[in-house]
Computed example of a mutant assay.
Amino acid sequence: ELRRAGALGSREALYYAFGLQLNPELPDLSATTLVRYLQAFAALYEWLKARHQIDFSRKLTSYIEPWSSTYIDLLISEDYAPDMEKLMRDYLHYNPTRNKALDLLPLFAHLNSGLLAEYVEDERIKSRPTLHYRLPDCDIDNPDWHFSTVWNDWVVLEQLVANADDLSKLVTEFRNSRKLSLHNLTHSWIDTSDQWLRSGNYV
């Protein structure tokens, strides 16, 4: 109905940096569960970005930035097992902004608004017990584009989080891919992660 009424998406103009945002509810609000979601997202960020074929108009903005590279190294380190306060402080130290492809500030406002306020003051942050997934474009004027396509790619991440052994294996692969080596110079992580997901019947 919106398409028939003339709604336009991200690709219509350079200044149309529209996005489709999801707010997936977490199965629980423990630090252990949240770390698993964050590790899965860090490992799948490039794959998800390639799947969504992000429009140039949104690449020009800061809305869909990845997390700090230094933070990702910390997050996927083998011994990273923080409690919730440390998890929040680590994230906010390196990523004190809502302009991230997976924005945790609404969740942190729900969990501990006082701690969040030590790092960020932004009236646009609304407290809610969910993740805030900001990466996908809104391609609503394209008849071949569907909300379900975006959601189904997110479900791949959900399924990975639910499989602890597979998540551990992928995070290990991702950690190794970030090291300087001839193999990593000649192989794309997007291709490697896509092949890994296909071999595990995730896609």
Rank of each mutant, 00 (worst) to 15 (best):
N152G: 06
R89V: 05
P82K: 01
P96C: 08
T61Y: 09
Y91Q: 01
W151A: 12
L87P: 00
M84L: 09
L60G: 09
A101H: 05
L115D: 06
T97F: 06
D90G: 07
M88W: 00
D141K: 12
R124L: 12
L111C: 12
D153V: 02
A81M: 03
I125Y: 13
N99V: 05
Y71Q: 08
P129R: 04
H132W: 03
R98C: 10
D73W: 00
E123T: 14
Y94C: 07
T61D: 07
D153C: 09
L105I: 02
E78V: 04
D103C: 10
P106T: 06
K126H: 15
K100W: 04
I76S: 00
E78R: 08
N99P: 10
N95G: 07
R128Y: 10
D153E: 15
S57W: 01
E118Y: 09
A109F: 01
Y63L: 11
L87F: 01
P82F: 02
D122P: 09
S148Y: 13
Y80V: 00
N99I: 08
V156A: 04
P136Q: 05
S69R: 11
S77M: 04
S57G: 10
N152V: 05
Y133M: 11
I125Q: 12
V120H: 10
K86P: 00
W154C: 02
L87A: 02
E78Q: 05
D144T: 14
N95Y: 04
I64R: 01
E123Q: 13
L60R: 14
T97P: 07
L74E: 06
H132K: 09
D90W: 07
N152P: 07
D144F: 15
L105S: 04
H132L: 02
Y91R: 02
L92T: 02
V120P: 07
F147K: 14
V150D: 05
L131D: 07
E118K: 15
K59W: 15
E78S: 05
P96K: 08
T130I: 12
L92I: 04
D79W: 00
